[in-house]
Amino acid sequence: MPEQALSLERGAFFGSIISTLNHILVGDTIWLKRFAKYSIPLASLEYMKCIEYPKALEQVIYPHFDDLVQARYKMDSVIQ
């Protein structure tokens, strides 16, 4: 699907496909940043200290799909 099509309003809760995918990444970021504050530091969550806390659940952190894909791969590696 062309990147322009990913940004079109689709009537979904977060509007476009790219906004919905960003929302999922924002949710994962919020939860993992919470886990990273756990009193016993986990090396696997060290990366989360470098990530800015999202301002809103509907924040589009990565408006370009390629950037979003790279961020998603990194986040998935942290989760795994």
Results as ranks from 00 to 15, higher is better:
E46M: 11
W31A: 08
A12L: 12
S7N: 07
K49C: 01
L42R: 03
Y47K: 15
A43C: 06
E3G: 01
L57V: 04
S16C: 04
A56E: 02
L8V: 03
D67W: 00
D28C: 12
I18M: 08
Y38T: 06
G15K: 00
F35L: 15
F65L: 15
P2S: 12
M1Y: 06
Q59T: 04
K33E: 07
A56V: 03
I17N: 05
I51V: 15
K49E: 10
Q59D: 03
F35Q: 10
Y73K: 15
K37C: 12
L68S: 01
A12D: 00
A36F: 12
T20W: 03
C50E: 13
L25S: 14
V60N: 11
T20R: 00
I24M: 02
Q80D: 13
L42Q: 12
G27L: 08
T20C: 12
L32N: 05
W31M: 11
D28K: 15
L6W: 15
S39K: 11
E46Q: 15
L25W: 10
F13S: 02
A5L: 14
C50F: 03
F65P: 04
M48Y: 05
Y38K: 03
Y47W: 11
D66Y: 06
L6Y: 14
D66V: 05
I61H: 03
T29N: 06
L6D: 01
L6S: 12
H64M: 08
G15S: 05
Y62C: 06
S39D: 15
R72N: 12
L57K: 00
D28S: 13
K49V: 01
F65M: 13
S44W: 11
V78K: 03
A36E: 13
F35K: 08
H64V: 10
I17T: 12
V60P: 11
Q70F: 07
W31C: 09
F65R: 05
D28V: 09
S44I: 13
I40S: 14
R34L: 09
G27I: 06
S39I: 11
K49Y: 07
E52P: 00
Y62Q: 04
D28F: 14
H23R: 02
I30M: 04
I18N: 11
E9A: 02
L68K: 00
E52W: 00
Q70V: 13
Y62K: 10
L21R: 06
E52Y: 00
I79E: 09
M48R: 01
T29G: 06
Y53L: 09
S19N: 14
K74L: 04
A36S: 15
R10Q: 15
D66N: 10
C50Q: 10
Q80V: 10
E9D: 07
G15E: 06
P63W: 07
K49L: 09
N22K: 10
G11H: 01
I79R: 08
S77Q: 13
L32R: 09
E58Q: 08
T20G: 12
I24F: 01
R72F: 10
M1F: 07
V78G: 05
S19F: 04
L32G: 06
V26Y: 12
H64T: 06
Y47N: 10
R34E: 14
I51E: 07
K37Y: 07
Q4L: 06
S19A: 14
E46A: 15
I24H: 05
L32I: 09
I51S: 04
L21K: 04
Y53R: 13
M75H: 10
P41A: 04
K33S: 11
G15C: 05
D76T: 08
K37M: 14
